[in-house]
Design a protein around this nucleic acid. Structure first.
Lengths: 193, 193, 193, 193
DNA sequence: CATGAATGAGAATTCATTCAT
DNA sequence: AATGAATGAATTCTCATTCAT
């Protein structure tokens, strides 16, 4: 399995750094190779093409995201608590990784439509998490029984995404994590009784 | 004034069509010129460069957006009504222009960071509208007095944007305008008393 | 006769200024037109094409050169004196016209081969003057009877040209006219008894 | 070192041929690549840009020039002999390389001012050679002690250059090498006792 | 005579990918 | 497995010239 060989991660981590520091359109394969300490050709032993690096990057990082959030919400008895933990974890992880926010919120969005559709596939895991929380909240009565889960999901994801993007665009000059609670409050008001 | 000569609009309208039908990266200047029925060089009598076409496109269309929304909410006595009208008008206008949604939600986001920052400048007019509605709602008691306007603005814009993007990505296969009311309900719940 | 109408000279003078200040490759027809205070199209009522402006420019200025030199050497009884006057007049005229030296020594040389061949035709009048002085000097015994006029002509023109070019390339930071006498001395030594 | 790999020379030699046969303005990079038998992109592994090809061309050829002349004058005891050898070698080398004269005397002069200034830097090595010969001649008493070396240098270079240019412009229809002696005679007369 | 809006051909350069070693 | 030299397709923008007014 290629994914377990050390150079696989090495290349993905190099890609994050190169994209964050140079921007999507200045992130040439040869630059990523140099950053990863391998030859250009070596990249193609681990990835089908350049797009494949980016999708893999997104899968790895977003997979880790979903995993981490799942861990953190596991024990919580209430949906609203779970939602708070989701927002908090999301904000916390991006706050901690200097480069990742730039890459996911700004740079990777410049990719072409096809790549973005594939990225959306990856996002489905995250959206499914939100959906489960919403369903649970409806069952428990925390959220309104007539709540349109599909729309609420878009509100939650759209709000989180917009909040993070604004924060990244403002060069992370304020604390993102402390926004988790008020953002959460807006969201549960929106969904709530 | 170049903006008032007929070819100015002609080129912008051609750009919307070409980008929507071919995608951002396949929208060559010569293709736009052909669609507009002018010579390649003529483009450069009206626009500084290719990027300038795209910024102008966004400015013209978004300016029209803001203008139209302002007209529609002018008479309304309540902030919540105004917000409903804003969402409705937004959804309606995108529903009516087959190409515009694709261009603004998908294609133009592939532009480079500099262009996107300029687009963000243009968006400020729209965000200011939302802000005014929120302030008014707080004053009238429709929205909670402790509401964080900056965050609420991000929620409203993020939710609308995500809803429209999801709709465009699903090939507009359901009716967007009928989502205005339930989306509005989510938003005023979020802001509300 | 077009050459006698005021706009003819107006355009040529504008061309000298524009070329001197912007360089040959930045001297667009529209820039020359603007400097001359006429419309782009008007240029083509007076000149066949852009090349024609440049040839005419050279003809006018070089014609004036030859004329002036002829005047100045007319009365001189000796060939060496005439040669001195030729060098002096040449250096003096270029010293006095800030722009002309840049245009003839640097900028116009960037023109294509065809234009340069035509410019060479124009130069023949100047070279013929030199030739006449040399022949006269040989007859009078001032110059060696075995002197190869063709080569001596190339020496004289080459030396003058190189001296002026070096002066222009050094931003005219020393006095050119005072070089006339020592240069003249070198030349008559070369040709002399 | 790129300069020692075979394709470096291959491309420079191709450039000389293409420029001589097509003219400066018709010497596209793709034409040079085809002549050199490499892909367009390969050019850019060896040269920064098109201008860099031309400067390198000039450096290589002019460096070879200076080197060859230095070799040939090394043993000569007298400055006048050295000068004769310099002129002879210069004329001989251009006579032998069908294309080089066209490129250096006519085509490369059409380049823009910046390129020409860089070419002038390269020429300094050649001018320094002339200067050394002149100084030596003054010390030995072959040349007049009051000789202005700077002006004499301009005379020598200007005369050689003009002679070669005239020869190239006349399609090399007479023998250049046999002009070396009479040209030399003119020059040493000019400088001489 | 004069205008100036419109034309459209033409070329340097980048970079993802390959493949012989 | 790893290398890295070589490939070659693809696109914006400029500007001399025209011609309807």
């Amino acid at each position: 399995m290629k994914k377990n060989r050390p150079k696989y991660r090495q290349i993905i981590d190099a890609a994050v750094i190169v994209i964050a520091e140079n921007g999507y359109h200045q992130a040439q394969v040869s630059k990523i190779a140099r950053q990863a300490g391998v030859a250009d050709g070596t990249i193609y032993l681990y990835f089908k093409n350049k797009e494949d690096i980016l999708i893999s990057l997104f899968q790895e990082k977003m997979g880790f995201f979903v995993e981490k959030i799942e861990e953190n919400i596991a024990g919580k008895p209430e949906a609203t608590e779970k939602l708070l933990m989701l927002v908090k974890t999301h904000f916390k992880m991006l706050s901690e990784d200097h480069h990742l926010g730039i890459v996911t919120q700004l740079e990777l969005r410049q990719s072409n439509k096809e790549l973005r559709l594939k990225i959306n596939e990856v996002l489905k895991g995250y959206l499914y998490l939100i959906e489960q929380i919403l369903e649970e909240g409806k069952r428990s009565g925390e959220f309104h029984s007539s709540l349109d889960v599909r729309l609420a999901k878009q509100m939650i994801f759209g709000t989180i995404d917009e909040t993070v993007t604004t924060w990244v665009m403002n060069d992370r000059k304020y604390d993102l994590v402390s926004l988790a609670e008020p953002v959460h409050q807006l969201l549960i008001n929106g969904c709530g009784q």
